[in-house]
Deep mutational scan, measured.
Amino acid sequence: DSWHDTVDGIELELHGADEELLKLAKELLKRGVSEEEVRRIIEELLK
């Protein structure tokens, strides 16, 4: 799946992010949310 590559990229960027955020990112990508949107959501949550 192409979203796996996206998640791997996000995981590299979010090496400090907790497991729950990564699960959320994967779930959003699986549901068709764009990579940009996922990054934006996670950045908001990390604030």
Rank of each mutant, 00 (worst) to 15 (best):
L28Q: 01
E27V: 03
S34I: 06
E37H: 04
L12A: 10
S2M: 13
L12C: 14
R40T: 07
E36K: 09
T6R: 05
K26P: 00
I41T: 06
E37P: 00
K47V: 12
R31V: 11
L12D: 06
A25D: 00
R40F: 06
H15F: 05
E13W: 01
L28N: 00
L22R: 12
D18K: 06
D18N: 11
S34H: 10
H4A: 08
V33Y: 14
E37A: 11
G9M: 10
L46S: 05
R39Y: 09
G32V: 01
G32D: 02
I42R: 00
I41N: 01
I41G: 00
L45R: 07
K23P: 01
L46R: 09
E43A: 12
K47P: 05
E20L: 11
E43P: 00
L14G: 08
L45M: 13
L22Q: 14
G32H: 02
L28E: 01
A17V: 13
G9I: 15
K26E: 13
G16F: 10
K26R: 11
L45Q: 05
K26Q: 09
D5G: 07
D18L: 10
V38E: 00
H15Q: 11
V7C: 01
L29T: 02
W3D: 13
D8Q: 15
R40A: 10
I41Q: 03
K30W: 02
E43Q: 15
V33M: 14
L22N: 08
L45A: 08
V38M: 05
D1Q: 05
E19W: 04
G32P: 00
K47A: 08
A25P: 00
L28A: 02
E36T: 14
L29F: 02
E19A: 07
K47S: 11
K26A: 10
I42P: 00
I42Q: 00
H4C: 07
V33H: 15
R31M: 11
L45F: 09
E37M: 05
D1W: 00
I10L: 15
V7D: 07
T6Q: 11
E37T: 08
D1Y: 00
R39C: 03
W3Q: 15
L12R: 08
A17P: 04
I10D: 11
R31I: 11
L46P: 01
L21Y: 06
S2E: 13
I41R: 04
K26G: 09
L21P: 00
V33G: 03
H15N: 13
S34Q: 08
A25S: 03
R39K: 12
V7S: 10
V7Y: 07
D5P: 15
E27G: 04
S2N: 15
E44H: 10
D18M: 13
E27M: 01
D1R: 01
G9N: 09
G32K: 01
D8V: 15
V33L: 14
E35F: 12
G32R: 01
K23I: 12
L14P: 11
H15P: 14
L46I: 11
E11Q: 11
L22H: 12
S34R: 07
E44T: 13
E36F: 05
E11R: 08
V38H: 00
E27L: 01
A25T: 02
R39W: 06
I42H: 00
G9H: 14
E44G: 11
D1T: 04
A17H: 10
I41Y: 08
L45S: 03
G32N: 02
L21V: 08
L14S: 08
D8I: 14
L24F: 10
L21M: 13
V7E: 07
L22E: 10
L24D: 01
G16R: 01
R39L: 11
E43R: 14
E19K: 06
K47Y: 03
L45P: 00
K23T: 10
H15C: 06
E19V: 04
E13K: 00
D18Q: 10
D8N: 14
R39G: 04
E19S: 04
L29H: 04
K30T: 08
E35M: 15
E35L: 15
A25C: 01
H15L: 11
E43H: 15
K30L: 14
L29P: 00
E43I: 13
E36Q: 14
K26T: 07
D18P: 14
K23G: 05
E36C: 01
I41M: 07
G16V: 11
E19T: 04
V33P: 00
V38P: 00
I10Q: 13
E20I: 09
A17D: 07
S2Y: 11
I41K: 03
V33I: 08
D5W: 00
L21H: 06
D8S: 12
E43Y: 06
L22M: 12
K26D: 10
S34V: 07
E44V: 14
R31E: 08
E13S: 01
E44N: 07
E44R: 07
A17G: 09
E37R: 06
I41L: 10
L29S: 02
A25V: 14
K26W: 05
V7F: 13
I41P: 00
G9E: 09
L45C: 05
E35W: 13
H15A: 13
R40P: 00
W3M: 15
D8R: 08
R40N: 05
V33E: 06
S34G: 12
W3K: 14
E11G: 09
I42K: 00
D1E: 12
V7T: 13
E19Q: 05
E37K: 08
R39S: 05
S34N: 14
K23H: 10
D5T: 06
E27P: 00
L46Y: 04
D5Y: 00
K26N: 10
L24T: 10
E20K: 07
E11N: 12
E27T: 05
E20H: 06
K26Y: 04
E44M: 13
A25Y: 08
A17K: 09
K47T: 10
V33C: 12
I10C: 03
V33D: 02
V7M: 12
K23A: 13
L24P: 00
E35S: 15
L28M: 10
A17Q: 07
L46V: 11
E43T: 15
E35I: 12
L29N: 02
L14Q: 07
A17I: 13
L28C: 02
G32I: 01
S2K: 09
V7G: 09
E36I: 14
W3I: 15
H4L: 15
A25W: 04
L21Q: 05
E27R: 03
E36D: 13
H15R: 06
E11K: 10
L24V: 08
I42G: 00
G9R: 12
V7H: 07
D18A: 14
L12P: 10
L24Q: 04
E13R: 00
E11Y: 01
E11P: 02
G32M: 03
D1S: 08
G16Q: 06
A25E: 03
L45Y: 13
